[in-house]
Simulated assay, not measured.
Amino acid sequence: MKLTPRLALLLTLPPLLWAGNAVVGRAVRDAIPPMTLNALRWLLASMLLAPLARRLLADPREALKRWRSLAWLGFLGMGCYNALQYLALHTSSPLNVTLITASMPVWMLGVGALAYGVKPTRRQAAGAGLSLLGVALVIARGEPGALLAVRFVPGDLLMLLAIFTWAVYSWMLARPMRGLRPGETPDWNWAESLMSQLMFGVVFSAVAAGAEQVVVPTAIQWSPALVAALVYVAIGPSLIAYRCWGLGVAEAGPAVAGFFVNLTPVFAALISAALLGIAPAWYHGVAFALIVAGIVVSSR
């Protein structure tokens, strides 16, 4: 496999867009409630995706036959993960959120071992340990002794819960439920596959947004900046990143592509410094190095 400029671009765009998603979510936190932001994001994304998924929408019977499996994917991937991330950004910084997200391999290994009986190798366990050390450094805000009496910022805990739901979602994609296994799915293209999940994810997101307004009624503060943010999160992190990542992983393989995920905290730090004036601390750099080392060790 040769890392061509095209392939490098395909694998670099998603981390850049995901980092931007975290920064934008933080920037608009006072203008729109997190659950409402998530619901509008996926509603707009589904509207933009509709022309590419018109076969599925014209005849949704195949998707409805698989409603249980698709509902779980929509609930975890759209209804939980992104909503929890936006909620986390109300008390945590974009850099912390993306660094905690970089511990995803740890959660992948844990879910695989506990739920699917896939035991990690020693090298994978060592890599997971390094990644966890990096996450612990972020949570302790650079003072290891503080871990003995650590007080989690609510956003940190919410982000840990978010990546757990994403790990479960990812394993459900790798080990599909009935009706979505190889040979059992219709001939859907990438847009139709995503739309089949969005059909349910949008419903879950809307219900959560409605409950949010009942519990904590909050008016949306509409502005050109908020509209631009909604367009960005619907197109960039939702559609462009998904498509580029799918093409990049298909060409390079998940092992090589996994290294590019860890560009997300770097991009988040740069974007946060440029737009929000949040300069990274020394422990962010050390944590990032530990997380990258963990990915390198576990992927070799």
Score class of each variant (00 low, 15 high):
Leu158Tyr: 03
Ala140Gln: 14
Lys119Met: 08
Met104Ala: 01
Ala136Val: 09
Val135Met: 15
Ala140Cys: 14
Gln124Gly: 11
Phe152Leu: 15
Thr91Met: 14
Tyr116Glu: 00
Ala125Trp: 01
Pro154Phe: 05
Trp67Arg: 13
Leu161Ile: 10
Arg151Glu: 12
Trp67Ile: 02
Met108His: 08
Asn96Cys: 12
Leu147Cys: 10
Gly110Arg: 01
Met104Asn: 01
Met47Val: 14
Ala126Thr: 09
Ala125Leu: 12
Leu157Ser: 11
Leu137Thr: 09
Ala71Ile: 00
Leu109Thr: 03
Ser93Cys: 07
Met104Ile: 03
Gly112Ile: 05
Val153Ala: 14
Thr91Arg: 07
Leu70Gln: 12
Asn96His: 14
Val97Trp: 02
Pro120His: 00
Trp72Tyr: 15
Ala58Phe: 01
His90Arg: 15
Met108Thr: 13
Arg123Met: 14
Val135Arg: 03
Asp156Ala: 12
Arg122Leu: 02
Val118His: 11
Val135Gln: 08
Met47Trp: 10
Leu76Arg: 13
Asp59Arg: 12
Arg55Met: 00
Val168Glu: 07
Pro94Gln: 03
Val168Met: 11
Ala88Asn: 06
Ala88Thr: 08
Ala126Ser: 10
Lys119Asp: 01
Ala63Val: 05
Gly79Pro: 13
Leu57Cys: 10
Gly74Ser: 06
Arg122Met: 01
Leu89Arg: 02
Lys65Gln: 13
Leu160Cys: 07
Trp67Ala: 11
Leu89Asp: 07
Leu52Val: 08
Pro94His: 07
Trp166His: 03
Leu52His: 12
Val111Ala: 08
Ser103Gly: 15
Ala71Tyr: 00
Leu130His: 02
Ala58Arg: 13
Ser131Cys: 09
Ala128Ser: 04
Met108Pro: 02
Ser170Arg: 09
Ala125His: 00
Gly134Asn: 06
Gly77Leu: 09
Ala113Ser: 10
Glu62Trp: 02
Val111Trp: 03
Pro154Arg: 10
Phe152Met: 11
Gly129Lys: 00
Leu70Met: 14
Ala102Ser: 13
Leu87Gly: 10
Tyr86Cys: 02
Leu109Ala: 13
Phe164Ala: 13
Gly134Trp: 08
Leu147Phe: 11
Ala149Cys: 01
Arg61Asp: 06
Phe164Leu: 15
Val97Lys: 00
Tyr116Pro: 00
Phe152Tyr: 07
Gly134Arg: 09
Tyr116Ala: 02
Ala113Cys: 06
Met78Gln: 12
Phe164Pro: 03
Val97Ala: 15
Asp59Tyr: 00
Ala88Arg: 03
Trp107Tyr: 04
Val97Pro: 03
Ser46His: 10
Phe75Trp: 06
Gly145Phe: 06
